[in-house]
Nucleic acid binder design. Structure first.
Lengths: 229, 229
DNA sequence: TTGACCACTGAACAGCGTTCACTACAGTGA
DNA sequence: TCACTGTAGTGAACGCTGTTCAGTGGTCAA
């Protein structure tokens, strides 16, 4: 008779909380990111706008939870990939990247929020888990011969290309794409081939570089390169 | 004494118009896309909010003009590239793509609006001019041997990868990028190499395909490929 | 029965994009 | 010089947004 009431209250709280989240997701899917507002959400679940704030501190927090929830499935799908050891790692890497793109196409609003709309100063979503899987797969492909920094560079480049096609396909569905699937393949194949290719030296500033990565590289850009190799 | 007044009025109109545009651009650069509002703009130029609407029909139209204006410089820079005939076309293509990325990094707010924030149902910006340059450069690299469709596919893939790195670098400047310049090079080099490489067949559905492009490809995706080559 | 706790609400605040009736003024023709 | 016209610009409003907060009604323990 003592904890029972509290437990019931807590259960009820969780229920309304997830009801709100569910409604938010539905509005989200139907109306897109732009068509979403705290007030329409409140109307949808039959509460006053203020009631939402008993469960979520802000619209932003609600978005975060929604997006993180959606990301979980991506992690899981990618995680399975990583565990299938026997297979060709290059094939696995490509499969992983395709999974990523397809996930983005399936959850355009979440993808938009996670990578695009969100204020970049805020803490990023836990995309790094997916990124970790990608890095691990790249390492599997390249062996341990490459330096960590080189591995990181290649993984980031892979991500960039994959994000590019995902972003364009979700944001501009009406563009006259030649063939979405062929395009995805083309982008991924090129990126993977490039990522697994030979190490290139940073573009020269006209001065000889030693074998290490050029630390000045990101600051001093060549403006008028005089000497080409 | 007749046209003079009207001409003066018109000149004055143009002046305030471009003053508003200038102020908008400044707010834009300083506060970013999110920090911009018609009311702050009005305050900035010393007018009432309503006055802005004597020159621009909506916030959206104002954005459009701003973005188009910014794009002009990109067109021009790319156009010059195309006219420099004697040079190595592959080198020119890479230079063009780098110009694109650098333009995006220099105008992050405009890039954000053009490719990201904007409602995709609305008419797109005249990015296609830049896209045309890219296609022409790809054609120059590949010769006339390839089919138009194949050319288009490769150009779109190039764009996707280049957009990807531009988008990520502008939207997530605080991500621990290994080296922005090396990364840009890596993405562009991979994408160009892939774009200029041999034609690949669309991934098989397990059935034999003839030599033509698979038209069913974009609709029927393989879910559980049984036969691997 | 009293008192504490709780989910929830109505009203408000400040800001947004946009509209519209209105004013003040410059230029024109008589 | 005076009345008329066209126009740049305004103030106030509308309906929307995210968010806050004092207040209300109900459930439960003592």
């Amino acid at each position: 008779m003592f904890m029972q009431a509290e437990a019931r209250r807590e259960r009820y709280r969780q229920e309304t909380r997830s009801a709100i989240l569910g409604a938010a997701r539905e509005i989200f899917v139907r109306q897109g990111f732009e068509g979403f507002s705290m007030r329409t959400l409140a109307r949808f679940v039959g509460y006053s706008p203020a009631a939402i704030y008993l469960h979520f501190t802000s619209k932003e927090e609600l978005f975060d939870i929604l997006v993180e929830e959606s990301f979980v499935h991506l992690y899981e799908a990618l995680g399975i990939l990583l565990k299938e050891r026997g297979k060709d790692p290059v094939r696995q890497l490509k499969r992983g990247l395709r999974l990523y793109v397809e996930w983005g196409l399936k959850h355009p609003s979440e993808y938009q929020i996670a990578f695009i709309v969100r204020n970049p100063t805020k803490k990023p979503y836990r995309t790094h888990r997916a990124f970790d899987v990608a890095r691990a797969l790249v390492k599997l492909c390249l062996g341990s011969s490459k330096a960590e920094r080189e591995l990181e560079l290649r993984t980031q480049a892979l991500w960039a290309a994959t994000h590019g096609i995902t972003s364009l396909l979700t944001q501009r569905p009406s563009f006259p794409w030649v063939s979405k699937q062929r395009l995805i393949d083309q982008v991924i194949d090129s990126a993977v081939q490039g990522a697994l290719g030979p190490t290139k030296r940073p573009r020269s500033n006209g001065k000889k570089l030693d074998g290490h990565l050029c630390k000045r590289n990101s600051k001093h850009r060549q403006k008028n390169p005089k000497h080409h190799s």
